[in-house]
Nucleic acid binder design. Structure first.
Lengths: 107, 107
DNA sequence: TTGCTAATTAGCACATTAGCTAATACTATG
DNA sequence: CATAGTATTAGCTAATGTGCTAATTAGCAA
């Protein structure tokens, strides 16, 4: 919803990668902290930024907090902005898929 | 091409708005500085960031430098990233257009 | 060359961000 | 209740970003 917060959240490489992790499965703060070799407080902060931007949601289960991707929110904001700036993008869908695939391949 | 630079460039509200201005026509540094009530040096810096991210190109004509949007670069990076994180976005195109329209309407 | 306009670069002040450690909640379990 | 485990908040430092003014570079014209 708030474009400012979304783009601020996405400005950080680690945060974009957190989203990539969460695109596969839910994970807890400490799960992610381990994978990023980062302290739990630092990770908690990143997750807070992502949550305030509406890009992830959290759910407490017992003593752990699980974070989950809000994929629609991400896609709608990004494509909404792209079309606002460049409304000619009709034929780009197929091309973009191919590009996404190439980028995954070079990770 | 370099996702880091693109997202860093888009993290600034003024820079996103500069892209919106450039989506309609080419403009010079001082044109944009006037519209944003910003000094020319500040604007020059923003344009430099956008150019290094590949989102705009510049062309000197006489003593003025004209900046132009690289729409494809923007759209490819954003949709490429969106599909990488959330590859389910097939049916979202129409929806996104509608959203872009709504956002323009509330400017 | 000189003068004028446009653009950029350099240097400074201020605010913000990202990482850490230490301290503080919250939850489950002895 | 006490303790351990998980998460978050507070407080700090180092680095970065954004705005400005002053100085410098590039181009055009007298």
């Amino acid at each position: 919803m708030e474009m400012d917060k979304v783009f601020e959240a996405l400005a950080s490489g680690p945060r974009r990668q957190i989203l990539a992790f969460l695109s596969k499965t839910e994970l807890t703060t400490s799960d992610l902290a381990l994978r990023f070799r980062m302290t739990a407080p630092s990770m908690s902060r990143h997750l807070s930024v992502l949550e305030h931007a509406g890009l992830v949601t959290s759910e407490r289960r017992g003593s752990k907090v699980y974070y989950k991707l809000e994929g629609k929110s991400l896609v709608n904001t990004l494509t909404g902005f792209a079309f606002e700036i460049c409304p000619v993008a009709g034929p780009l869908k197929r091309e973009s898929r191919a590009m996404a695939k190439r980028q995954r391949a070079t990770d």
